[in-house]
Every structure is written in C-alpha cells, then in structure tokens.
C-alpha cells in the first residue's frame, strides 16, 4: 500500500488537512503533528487493513533549520527551528511500509511516547532522549542509555559543545 492509499484510510478517523506527504528518493514521508501521534499509531497498528505491527526503527534528527548564532569562543549556537523524530513502520501481515515524521520545536521538544504501542520503541526512545534531548511523554523509564547519567548536553545536536571536565577528567582530547 502506498502512502497516498494509507492517507485515504486515515480520512475516516482523522482530519487529513493536518497531514502532509513529503516526496523523497527513498520513499514518501508522512508528516504528522505531535498531538495526534499516539492515537494515530494505535489506529495504524490495530486497523485490519493497515496492521503495522512492527516499528522497525525510530530515529531522532536535528534539522538545524534555526538561526545560527556565533559565540565568542568561535563555536555556534542554534536558536529556533526544529528537531524531528522518524518512525519507520512495517507490517508483517501485508508487507507494506510507512514512514512518519514529527516536527518538534527545538526549545521544547516533547512528543508522546509510542512505547505502549510497540514495545521495541523503549530503548530507541531512550537513545533519542540521550543524544538529542527529545522528551517522550509517558515513557516508563526515560533516562540516558548510552551515556553516563550525569553527562551534560545532547551530543548529536548540531550545536553540541563537549563539556570541559567530566568528574575531574579532561574530556576534549
């Protein structure tokens, strides 16, 4: 099933004006607002015709589309713009795929957790929180997973600056 066909089915329950299809080399992407994400994911999983029973991948992305501000020490800081989360869904039953993209404001990146829909999201969401600082509301155990608990900052953001010292050890080498 193509993204356009899936959108036809979504019409029955959601107002489609809030969705947008972005064309792309590696397959179309459906951009959805964060406030309907959880309902949408439950619908995508439970509807017989769609049956997206597996979340293949969840990735956070720093779009870096804000304003770049130069700081005194030569590094820069990004103000405004967006972070994004991607959901790559797949159905074992129908063997079709769908990519969801949610845009989040950089200053307050909060998105509902889909952990209750697909349990595989658990660690993926913790990783996105760890490396991008995206907060997944409703996650049962949202803490850092790859980095130590007391690490500063979110390394995969484009304007990340390494902390000087970590527990008395010099970090930048």
């Amino acid at each position: 099933m193509t993204t356009t066909e899936i959108l036809e089915i979504l019409k029955e329950k959601f107002s489609v004006e809030q969705f947008e299809i972005q064309s792309n080399i590696g397959g179309e992407i459906l951009i959805v607002p964060s406030n309907v994400l959880l309902d949408l994911c439950f619908f995508l999983r439970d509807d017989e015709r769609l049956a997206f029973d597996s979340l293949m991948n969840l990735s956070g992305v720093d779009l870096a589309d804000g304003e770049k501000k130069k700081l005194e020490d030569g590094s820069f800081e990004i103000v405004g713009g967006h972070l994004a989360t991607y959901y790559h869904l797949h159905s074992f039953k129908h063997n079709h795929k769908l990519t969801l993209k949610v845009l989040l404001p950089r200053e307050n990146p909060v998105v509902p957790s889909v952990e209750r829909v697909w349990r595989s999201a658990d660690w993926h969401e913790r990783e996105a929180y760890d490396l991008f600082g995206i907060v997944f509301e409703g996650h049962h155990n949202l803490k850092r997973i790859l980095l130590p608990d007391d690490w500063d900052g979110y390394p995969l953001r484009k304007d990340y600056k390494v902390q000087e010292f970590y527990q008395g050890m010099k970090v930048p080498y």
Binding site: G27, M56, Y86
Partner: peptide, 16 residues
C-alpha cells in the same frame, strides 16, 4: 533520505 535494511547474521540491520 533513505531507510534501507538488510538481513545481517543477527537480524534486521537498518541504515537511516
């Protein structure tokens, strides 16, 4: 952008 997956010996290996 692309999400591409292959069957590695351990399971589905995906590159986004």
């Amino acid at each position: 952008e692309i999400y591409f997956r292959v069957e590695s010996p351990k399971g589905e290996l995906g590159y986004h």
